[in-house]
Amino acid sequence: MATRELHDCDNASALLAYVGARRTAAARAEADQLAAAVAWAGMHSTDSYDEAATLVPGVEESLTIAGPGAPLVAEFSVLEFAAALGLSSDAGRMYLGEAVELAHRLPQLYARVQSLDLPVWKARRIAKTTLDLPMAGAAYVDAHLAAVAHKVSIAQLDRTVEEARVRFDPDEALARQNAAQEGRHFDIETRQVSFDGCVDVHGTLDLADALDLEDAVARRAHDLSALGLDAPLDVRRSIAVGDLARRQLSLDLAAAEPEDRPKARQVLLHVHLSEAALAGASTDLDLARVEETRSFVSAEQVKTWCANPDTQVIVKPVIDLADHVHVDAYEVPDRLRERQVLLAAHVRVPVVPETSPAGGLRPHRPRRPRWTDL
């Protein structure tokens, strides 16, 4: 059926079909514009024999717009393309560079854009973060994100790019880590107080310090609720920070028993060794994965945390995920449950209610657990 114009949509179904068709057309137009940028860069590449790629002697230079391995382009061609898009010279250069980055260094992601399986904006977001990666790092990102880039979060995209940087450009990753450590801060805007008497607090902390602070604030907020404070969670958390500052957590006012409260930092490490590590091969920068935050840090950072005299280090047996463990009991042992969680990386819980014969809802009766539900 031919696509109707908006004024011809006389019912809800026709209007939804119109919207869907326009969205597809818009996605196609964006993908075609990206392909045009790639063709323009190829036409003006310094490696091209096209007459348009000829540089003006003494006036024009070749320009790097994408990562290592991508072609260089004539300087003036960037300005012409930016003008055609109605963008500034800097914005046009960024657009052209991200298009070239996708076509030449992230070909699988570029193919998904052209098949309309991946939005242009998300592909450009990935390309922007891979511009300074070596060729092997860009290939790593392309291989790991091509099939899932359309549905994963921006945070996961950034984690994948960062892991590629650590693996294939460890010197740069270490330099960024040191710069981040130097950039830690904690600011309380006491000079910007209005009539409401509230101030903003913001900062950047080491991961271990942030987890400790989160644990202390969460526990104190829970205690305040147990002690009868009828306030929203966010309000209780803000009060908890003040209690920490006044050291009221040391008083015996908590709802929980003192022995139930952790007295020191606890470090729980899940160590996963790669085949290269098992074979004795060394890497430039060893990684330790923090599963609770879905992130990774350097092994040196873990050593720093464990060297803290207030840290309680918990040592657990290494779980071989390739091994087959059998039990002869109905109950699932903790070691097997943890093993299945590590393998599946998620927990499935039945939440769909069942309908009774009378037409009402009745509580869902738990079925016998299966290994995939652990």
Rank of each mutant, 00 (worst) to 15 (best):
residue 41 A to E: 06
residue 37 A to F: 11
residue 81 F to C: 02
residue 66 A to T: 12
residue 33 Q to D: 12
residue 82 A to R: 02
residue 48 S to R: 05
residue 27 A to M: 09
residue 113 V to C: 07
residue 82 A to Y: 02
residue 65 I to V: 15
residue 27 A to F: 02
residue 36 A to C: 08
residue 100 V to N: 07
residue 120 V to M: 00
residue 58 G to P: 13
residue 59 V to H: 11
residue 77 S to H: 01
residue 61 E to H: 15
residue 112 R to G: 07
residue 95 Y to V: 03
residue 52 A to V: 01
residue 65 I to Y: 09
residue 97 G to I: 12
residue 119 P to Q: 12
residue 51 E to N: 04
residue 101 E to M: 13
residue 70 A to S: 13
residue 36 A to W: 06
residue 48 S to V: 05
residue 115 S to K: 08
residue 68 P to L: 11
residue 112 R to T: 03
residue 49 Y to T: 11
residue 63 L to P: 00
residue 70 A to P: 00
residue 89 S to L: 02
residue 45 S to L: 07
residue 39 A to L: 13
residue 78 V to H: 03
residue 61 E to R: 15
residue 27 A to N: 11
residue 101 E to D: 09
residue 97 G to H: 11
residue 102 L to W: 13
residue 78 V to A: 14
residue 58 G to D: 12
residue 62 S to Q: 14
residue 97 G to P: 05
residue 44 H to A: 15
residue 47 D to P: 00
residue 41 A to Q: 05
residue 61 E to Q: 15
residue 38 V to P: 00
residue 89 S to R: 10
residue 87 L to W: 05
residue 58 G to W: 13
residue 41 A to K: 03
residue 71 P to I: 12
residue 98 E to D: 15
residue 97 G to A: 07
residue 112 R to D: 03
residue 64 T to I: 15
residue 71 P to G: 06
residue 53 A to D: 05
residue 109 L to S: 06
residue 90 D to V: 12
residue 77 S to G: 07
residue 43 M to P: 00
residue 109 L to Q: 09
residue 50 D to L: 06
residue 30 E to S: 11
residue 60 E to S: 14
residue 108 Q to D: 13
residue 32 D to C: 09
residue 49 Y to E: 10
residue 29 A to F: 07
residue 82 A to Q: 06
residue 86 G to L: 03
residue 42 G to W: 09
residue 33 Q to Y: 02
residue 27 A to C: 04
residue 47 D to C: 03
residue 31 A to T: 02
residue 103 A to K: 09
residue 37 A to I: 07
residue 65 I to E: 08
residue 42 G to T: 05
residue 31 A to K: 02
residue 63 L to V: 13
residue 82 A to I: 02
residue 40 W to L: 09
residue 110 Y to R: 03
residue 97 G to N: 07
residue 81 F to V: 04
residue 45 S to W: 05
residue 80 E to Y: 05
residue 104 H to G: 01
residue 116 L to Y: 00
residue 114 Q to T: 09
residue 31 A to N: 01
residue 59 V to E: 12
residue 90 D to H: 11
residue 106 L to T: 10
residue 43 M to T: 13
residue 62 S to I: 00
residue 36 A to R: 12
residue 64 T to W: 13
residue 80 E to P: 00
residue 48 S to F: 04
residue 44 H to I: 07
residue 107 P to G: 04
residue 80 E to I: 07
residue 93 R to Y: 01
residue 76 F to E: 08
residue 91 A to W: 05
residue 74 A to L: 03
residue 63 L to C: 12
residue 111 A to R: 14
residue 31 A to V: 04
residue 96 L to E: 06
residue 99 A to S: 10
residue 72 L to V: 10
residue 51 E to R: 15
residue 92 G to I: 01
residue 90 D to W: 09
residue 88 S to N: 08
residue 119 P to F: 01
residue 86 G to P: 06
residue 36 A to V: 03
residue 63 L to M: 15
residue 69 G to Q: 09
residue 120 V to G: 01
residue 120 V to R: 05
residue 109 L to I: 14
residue 64 T to Q: 15
residue 110 Y to C: 09
residue 64 T to R: 15
residue 104 H to L: 09
residue 58 G to C: 11
residue 98 E to R: 15
residue 60 E to L: 07
residue 51 E to M: 13
residue 73 V to R: 01
